[in-house]
Design a protein around this nucleic acid. Sequence first.
DNA 1: GAGTGGTCTAGACCACCGT
DNA 2: CGGTGGTCTAGACCACTCC
Lengths: 237, 237
Amino acid sequence: MTATRRPSLVDQVRSGLLEDLVSGKLAPGAKLPNENEIGERFGVSRATVREAVLGLMEAGYLARRHGSGTYVTKAPRSRHALDSTVSYTEMIREAGHEPGVMVLSNTVREPTEEEAELFDVTGTILELERVRLADARPVIYSRDSIPSALIEGTPPQAMFRSLYAVLAEAGHEVRRATAELLPVLADTKLARVLEVKRGAPLLHIDQVDYDTKGHAVMLSLEWHVADAFELIVNRRA
Amino acid sequence: MTATRRPSLVDQVRSGLLEDLVSGKLAPGAKLPNENEIGERFGVSRATVREAVLGLMEAGYLARRHGSGTYVTKAPRSRHALDSTVSYTEMIREAGHEPGVMVLSNTVREPTEEEAELFDVTGTILELERVRLADARPVIYSRDSIPSALIEGTPPQAMFRSLYAVLAEAGHEVRRATAELLPVLADTKLARVLEVKRGAPLLHIDQVDYDTKGHAVMLSLEWHVADAFELIVNRRA
DNA sequence: GAGTGGTCTAGACCACCGT
DNA sequence: CGGTGGTCTAGACCACTCC
């Protein structure tokens, strides 16, 4: 259905300002009008302007300086940042490569002890073993586990699409995730599926995805080829 | 001086709620009073309550459900998350280890091409080569570069403390940072200083720190021992 | 001192959840 | 339907920056 909702006033102001940014009407380093003037332009209150600006600040486009003004950031936002996207398909595409997926296995099995503890629901686990491709080159090997109960009725061929889309359609949209990072060496199996040498450096990511209600809905074990694409993390004090 | 500033009302409400959380008065899964009641309790308006709750949501303690209520998150917040701290000293301490630092070198030199482009100021670069310890075990080797102009007048012995503290005192408090992650293998030098085998897996982090004005103030090249402590990244959709 | 963002209020109406 | 969070307003005063 993808209900077409009226964008909030905050959204409208944010989009309006963003348009000025990408069109170049507001160049990097330029100073924005003050908050009252922006409010007049869009016909909204100052509180609404502030929330819109806050969003653009978090996205890295703007910087506020108390007592001075609001300015356009010089350094453009880093794409495919690890902390602001959860979809690797998107990440690969934004890095300028053609994303692809190869399904190695698709099984239903009993939960492991770790999974039984992690997931609130009981029952079997659907495990998907895949290799992601960037321009036909293997870049990520992953083993994803989802409780079968969460995606009952989803046709098997849907598994070839994004698991996030599958979960969202089943009413379990992923809102946030926790990822643990660990550098490892490629063993024989990983070397084969990722087409690297045995002992090559890989980044292992152990990730748990949570839906809007805060329930764990997917466990992902991933191994990333070292130089496939830049993995960026934005850190804040 | 560390000016003692009156905490804002938002801070007071956030602290008050946080106290209930850590004391267990509000158990995981419990439902909070509605926003008007919280406002009455602290004597503030609903907007103030909402901003405080927003902070606790971003920190992962609370979850709001439209039309239902605000609830205490079940999974406790992961400590030493890579995206919410920039100080490794803190990270090591929170992981339950005694942090330590060994300074390998402390030199002043001309900027590299990359540094000249990155930093807004000109002049020489102060480079600090260090090994961080957790309970006397080497866990991170780092090479930090700061434009000398930014920390003029800082006594040399200050370099043994946190560089973030040094920068903050010089009026360049670090607000955010961008980190690029890359799994690598230990070469001979890294193996020696980190006391691991040659070819051992390491996590290389290439980080740029920015101050409140958005200017780059420090460039850090780091190599982390694989299993020293868990590196977590919180991701949001 | 003039102008900016930072904080806060009191109230209104809307959208969603559960009974 | 009542209760919850989601959005928004109009106005006030404070804190900081810069001339």
